[in-house]
Design a protein around this nucleic acid. Structure first.
Length: 423
RNA sequence: AGAGAGGUGGCCGAGUGGUCGAAGGCGCACGCCUGGAAAGUGUGUAUACGCUAACCGCGUAUCGAGGGUUCGAAUCCCUUCCUCUCUGCCA
């Protein structure tokens, strides 16, 4: 959520920046500023009435004491009148504030100046790539065929037990999953992130805090009986640890990591995209979350990018990094780097990590602030990134490491798997 | 899930209708004291919004949350959330 005061100060620059998203905020901005104006003037009037009313309340008992009952009754009447007006006004204040809030929810974050303009993923900027695309042997298979051939992932069984998008990992497949999770967590903690195990369900307030609610309600599984949501990413519970908090400057930076399954309804996704491990309703992910001072947040984003690079380098997967263009940038993000691994057998790039600087957009909803050494308070910046999401890493390993003898395991994982070949 | 108790400032804890944003203590910050420290001592120490150039000042709100009664609510009533104890159930 953008800050009204900043919109007022930077209106023109913001409008221009939002053009990169192909988002014309002209009308929304003027509506927001109008509502804010109204909110402030309503509060000013209300405050005056309440002040008057408080004053009367202080005078009334004095009059009773001095025996001026008539006068006291008069004031009582006056006070009652003020109360009627104050009720009206506070009702109006609530309404205007809610309207303002609603309009602010409709505004996406302001893209960083480095973000290129663009309409779709075709306009994303490749900023880095690394790794050799392997020459596969004759008859190389896509990962869903390999999974079947070596009996390590059973999609049919998942269909039977739950439904599409909930695969069952078996034997070495299950072990490889566990190895990846442990490897990723080890790398995160070595990089100074504190590991957390978070609840897999969150309440409504948390959903609102990180921005999944109220808009993207349909993307989360909702447990209606208890009004809880299955997390779509551990970003939600982890970031919400810091909801409604005022952190001291000396506590920064804050670096958190956590492994959780993630649950996504993926309503509206069809086609080849959902084949095999490409898109699932339940998948595993190790997430990085950082809370930073505003002046440090872009260095932190670079640091996260370096971290993910190292993971992919160690795993020996060919990848590229894209700076997302305005049109492809997430609603809440100021700048996002997507990592894509090349899936040799599918002959396409698969998104495997997304590292974003949300700047103050999320912090404003979360009420997550910093108290500076001099006592000044301001919103913190939040960042998050996957390090990494498992299914597509697995797909990449299966496809890129296949040989006629079987699937070789990247060297760095062997200590975690206890085997170096799936056959 | 049933019965009971309770939710007050960073923490502990007083306060059962009227100058209560809230006693007292602890903690913390700064000063004095000291060769230095401890002890002692003095002062200060919530957040949000609005007015404002202002993190000066003033106003308003906030004692889990929301609503109600009243001229006036931390205190009374209702709803709701949470915590604790006992009982039940259970990995």
């Amino acid at each position: 959520m953008l800050q009204v005061a900043k919109i007022r100060e930077n209106k023109e620059a913001y409008l221009k920046a939002l053009e990169k998203r192909n988002f014309d905020a002209t009308e929304l901005f003027s509506e927001v500023l109008r509502l804010d104006e109204e909110r402030r003037s309503t509060q000013a009037t209300l405050d005056e009435i309440l002040a008057e009313s408080n004053k009367l309340s202080r005078e009334i008992p004095l009059m009773f004491k001095s025996g001026e009952h008539m006068k006291a009754d008069l004031l009582k009447e006056k006070s009652a009148g003020l109360k009627v007006r104050s009720k009206e006004l506070s009702g109006k204040l609530n309404q205007v504030s809610a309207d303002l809030q609603q309009q602010l929810y409709n505004l996406p974050n302001i893209p960083n100046e480095l973000v290129p303009a663009g309409a779709s993923e075709a306009d994303n900027q490749e900023v880095f790539s690394e790794g050799e695309i392997p020459q596969l042997h004759e008859g190389a298979l896509p990962h869903w065929e390999l999974a079947k051939k070596y009996d390590i992932i059973d999609f049919e069984l998942g269909n039977k037990i739950t439904g599409a998008g909930f695969p069952v990992y078996k034997g070495k497949g299950a072990r490889l999953q566990r190895a990846l999770i442990t490897y990723f967590l080890d790398k995160s903690t070595q990089a100074g992130y504190t590991e957390f195990q978070m609840p897999l369900m969150v309440n409504e307030a948390s959903g609102i805090g990180t921005g999944q609610l109220p808009d993207k309600e349909g993307q989360m599984y909702h447990v209606q009986q208890d009004d809880l949501y299955l997390i779509p990413t551990s970003e939600v519970p982890i970031t919400n640890m810091f909801r409604d908090s005022l952190l001291e400057e000396k506590d920064f930076p804050i670096k958190c990591t956590g492994y959780t399954p993630c649950f996504r309804r993926e309503a509206g996704s069809y086609g080849a995209d959902v084949r095999g491990l490409n898109r699932l309703h339940q998948f595993d992910k190790v997430e990085l979350v950082r809370i930073e001072k505003p002046e440090d947040s872009y260095a932190a984003l670079d640091d996260m990018v370096e971290h993910v690079k190292e993971l992919l380098r160690e795993l020996g997967l060919p990848y590229r990094i894209l700076r997302l263009c305005g049109g492809d940038l997430g609603f809440t993000s100021s700048m996002t780097y997507d990592f894509e691994v090349y899936s040799t057998a599918q002959d396409r790039w698969l998104e495997i990590s997304s590292c974003s600087n949300i700047e103050a957009y999320q912090a404003n909803r979360l009420k997550l602030r910093i108290r500076r050494k001099d006592g000044k308070k301001e919103l913190a910046h939040t960042l998050n990134g996957s390090a990494l999401a498992l299914p597509r890493v697995l797909a990449g390993i299966l496809e890129n490491y296949q040989t006629p003898e079987g699937i070789r395991i990247p060297e760095v994982l062997v200590p975690y798997t206890g085997f170096d070949l799936i056959n």
